[in-house]
Write a protein that binds this DNA or RNA. Sequence first.
DNA 1: ATAGGGTTAG
Length: 702
Amino acid sequence: MATAVVVSAAALPAAPSPSPVRYTPRRAALRDVPQLHAALLKSGELTTSPESFHSFLEATALPSSATTAAHLAYAIRLLRLGPHPPLSARSYNILIRAFFRAGHPEDALHLFVEMLGAAIAANVCPDQHTIANTVKSCARIYALATGRSVQAYAVKLGFMADQFVLNSLIHMYASCGDIVAAKVLFNAVEEKGVVTWNAMIAGYFKNGDWKEVVEMFKGILEVQAPFDEVTLVSVATACGKIGDSKLGERIGDYAEEKGMVRNRNLATALVDMYAKCGQLDKARRLFDRMHSRDVVAWSAMISGYTQADRCREALAIFNKMQATEVNPNDVTMVSVLSACAVLGALETGKWAHSYIRRKALPLTVVLGTALVDFYAKCGCIEDAVKAFESMPMRNSWTWTALIKGMASNGRGREALELFSSMREANIEPTDVTFIGVLLACSHSCLVEEGRRHFDSMTQDYGIHPSIEHYGCMVDLLGRAGLIDEAHRFIRNMPIEPNAVVWRALLSACTVHKNVEIGEEALKQITPLDPNHSGNYILLSNTYASVGQWKDAAMIRKEMNERGIKKIPGCSLIELDGTIFEFFAEDSDHPQSREIYEKVDEMIENIKMAGYVPNTADARLDVDESEKQVSVSHHSEKLAIAFGLMKSRPGATIRLSKNLRVCVDCHAATKLISKVYNREIVVRDRNRFHHFKDGLCSCNDYW
DNA sequence: ATAGGGTTAG
């Protein structure tokens, strides 16, 4: 009896509340271990009773949150140096399991090898427990070849009928990507238990085959095979990934009904599933009802908001998390940075970066890429480069993020140089990389390079252009003024052009005042995307730019008749870590009056520097002076005025807006940067504008 | 004694 050994159960610290599923051994605080050891030595039990020895080993080595490297070191010294009873498989098994659970699968494998040596010397033979635990370690480090040789032992020793051995092997093969080997074993198991099914499902899960996870579960239901919480965790998560909200919801309801949502992992999986199926508020209600939330639960909720483009709420919930005992990890910070990137929340994101450094969170490829992307999307391209260079590992996503960042910050040449370096580093570009490359060309008017890369994409890399690539090309040609060529390009596309492609052409027509093709473009867009206000506004502005006021007014009238509302312009500005949101003609802000006064002052000042209001993009139903007032209340100007009021002199003003910068705001902002001696960085829908000393980084080409 | 589970980037 194991209990007979331990000096006194009362001498041991109470175990934390045991999880309902897993076996939780008695544990000893490190300072109690020698005492326990001494007592066992003194009574002689340590050497005479194998049961006592094993029990002591378990108490010392089996990990809990309190287990340290010192515990493991103590146990391994005891095993190697003794004194102890003649060693058995059991002693090795305890340590193999301990090292595995403590996150040292390699050491577990070393112990297995050591055990095989001992097998020769002292007649210690691996048993089914040894095999199962060793196989688990192989799975953890993706040691497929090693796993196969362990299976050879299992065959040789006749353990292949053991459920535990079989299940661990199925799991090992599946998680190492050898799904065929896993399936062969799975099919060979006659009595499939719930764990057998789960191991196979987990295999498909690990390989990202969400559809097959769902299919297997449907198979389970069909043959009425057993399933449990663990099954549902995988299946619910898979439902989220493929957007199967019907099955997801059934699982959610079932879990509620059976009280399974008390299982934290399952509740977390359901939160994730609801969020990914677009039921964010349902996800939140479940999250709020959870009894305890660990870092994964918090991260799931935060990423749910980020992925649903509700980034301010993502940051709000991150703030709540910080008031708890749970510490964010690298995964949490990925979502946080991604939210900051979307919002252009530079201060908050910088804080996140410093947190990562302070806590020495592992700079994984994903986290590093999120950092690069964040800095690039906040217009801090130098910091993006620094983050890129500080990463120990980069992949194609990382390079792509920086290339796109360079492109949208108007540094096309550098983006193309980066692309060359990427190739020299032997990182395979993807379809998205080429979108970055083509954007770089179009934002910097590099027409020849763009054509070359577009052709090379298919010829040299076998990547077939998607509609987005075609859109970039139309944009590139159109912006460069090659409107006819762009139009021909669309007509020769092998796939149906969509509204985005035609809109790129239309927008080029607006810039280059081409009424004829602009009309054609709108005609093509209307059936594809009838309710997008931008289309009408672009053509109306094209008419206005060549003085066809009647036609311009007619288009606006048509818009009104069809009940199409202009998307309100919206600008975000972050000051001292708080994000302020402005709409055109906004009067919601408590300091509205001061802000409008500041706008008037700003306009007067830049007029003295030569500003002439450009009302081509203004509403048409009012007279000229009203038009001037209306453009002066564009959301950008309100946000800039607020920024001037609230930041110290000379500080850079950064804002991000939902539409593209209008001609008037662009001209005004250039002058504001000069008159107020401020750098102003504006992120619009498409790209960045860095205003300084009366000039813009886009060279007025956007 | 033993097997299976949730969150992340372009």
